[in-house]
Design a protein around this nucleic acid. Structure first.
Lengths: 121, 121
DNA sequence: CACTATACTATACTAAAGGATACTGGTATA
DNA sequence: TATACCAGTATCCTTTAGTATAGTATAGTG
């Protein structure tokens, strides 16, 4: 018995994994190229489909539609249809979606600092 | 003339786009499934390749290798080779990588809250 | 000698993300 | 009549992400 050396590095191997878990959850919910941009746009004001398409540069209606559905399923946004002619659809943030404001702000701060860093090099 | 209705919604159309830009930069740098987990592991301590492989559940050596390279190119981590036998390689965060701590903390907080939210429903 | 470990790389593949383009139906406008 | 708007779909395609498996060289261990 006693095959292992006693010098085996001693640090709790799980604490790091535990720390990673909730961040992976967040990545699953708001990860990808378009979700945060959509959420940010909606944090400014309620938007209609075409408005979002114009605000989020480079997105195609296919991706916008897909991501809006996922965000709705995850409870981050609301979709409201008005039977005007032609029909109009409004997207807004739920309280849960709004609760991302700190995450977005922190990321934005870091992003702005990064841009300045690159300029100053 | 005067083709457009005067009821056209009036809000500065650029301010929202401007807000999105830095966040898109951040997504480019730390987006994806593995980069933040790697950064978090390295924020705990310097890791060797195999240690990272064990800490980050589900990652393959190929993806780990790929992502480590990209993180190094972007200046977020350091790679140091020691000519021991067999060779050992240590990965650590640069100051720039360390500067992500607030972003990670904020995301983690939100993730933990989200987990509790789901449990309480 | 067989086996393990380290720190990866190479090859080949599948799955998922994302993009390009065209189209729908109904109304209003030119 | 022809065109444009709205809120998307449908179809096809490319790119990126990720997986599986095997292999490199060197040294130490049983």
């Amino acid at each position: 018995m006693n095959k292992k050396k006693s010098e085996t590095p001693i640090y709790t191997p799980t604490e790091c994994k535990k720390f990673i878990l909730p961040v992976r959850d967040v990545i699953d919910i708001i990860g990808g190229k378009w979700r945060l941009p959509i959420i940010i746009a909606l944090s400014f004001k309620i938007h209609r489909f075409k408005e979002l398409e114009r605000q989020i540069e480079g997105i195609t209606p296919r991706m916008l539609s897909k991501e809006l559905k996922e965000l709705e399923i995850n409870g981050l946004i609301n979709r409201e249809v008005f039977n005007t002619m032609p029909v109009s659809v409004e997207y807004s943030l739920t309280d849960y979606g709004k609760s991302l404001d700190k995450v977005i702000e922190t990321m934005r701060d870091w992003g702005l600092t990064h841009r300045n860093k690159i300029r100053n090099e």
